[in-house]
Nucleic acid binder design. Structure first.
Lengths: 107, 107
DNA sequence: CAATCACATACCCGATTGGCTATGTGTTAT
DNA sequence: ATAACACATAGCCAATCGGGTATGTGATTG
């Protein structure tokens, strides 16, 4: 019953975490220390947040020597778009129903 | 500094709450009692969730006698789409940068 | 006008969350 | 070889959260 949207919405609900993700979208590959300044929290906290983003599939990491580069996972946004589209779709369906209803009433 | 996305992502991060919103998108105007069955939680909890959704601008309520009809707020999804589009945009910009960089290197 | 209904509010409680510091582990620089 | 660095993990704590029950309030029904 645990939808993929669950982890994504959950992950993005925290401002600090969403900030990290936005940063990665904007600037691409960045190390943990690189993200540290803008985040405004301690390094362990940044690491913890990145782990949550990674679990949600929003972020990928790549080891290189003693550095860990994080980058935003483009396809993750797809899930969000799909869900939003589905919701909008329900709307249109309802209008369609209303439409056919009105047409039926018209006869 | 509190973005409108904050409340929206936060509101949708809880499955029960997202369930209520999805239900309202699908079926349109519904009373609290009408939402009660599918939600699987007590009436006060549903009311509390609806209040949070309302504060986030995801839902509107309309009083009618002793009934309160709730409905999904279509434009709220717009905020979500905009944010997602912005994130995707950053991506394309980065590719553009890479593109111009490669062209520059090519000369 | 009494009972019921629809809903909101108030309060309580255990679980989760987001922050911190301290520390461990592997890597590079000296 | 040692020190410094980059990062992750562990453990702690106050605050928030999501659920519950009890109760208040206004509208409707009998």
């Amino acid at each position: 019953m645990t939808e993929p949207q669950d982890a994504i919405f959950r992950a993005l609900s925290d401002p600090t975490r969403r900030g990290l993700f936005e940063r990665l979208c904007r600037d691409g590959d960045t190390t943990v220390v690189g993200l540290l300044g803008e985040a405004g929290v301690s390094q362990p906290v940044v690491s913890k947040h990145l782990k949550i983003l990674k679990t949600a599939g929003l972020v990928r990491d790549r080891q290189q020597g003693r550095y860990t580069y994080y980058s935003a996972e483009r396809d993750a946004l797809r899930t969000l778009v799909d869900w939003t589209t589905e919701m909008s779709g329900f709307w249109n369906d309802r209008f369609d129903d209303l439409d056919t209803l009105l047409k039926r009433m018209d006869q």
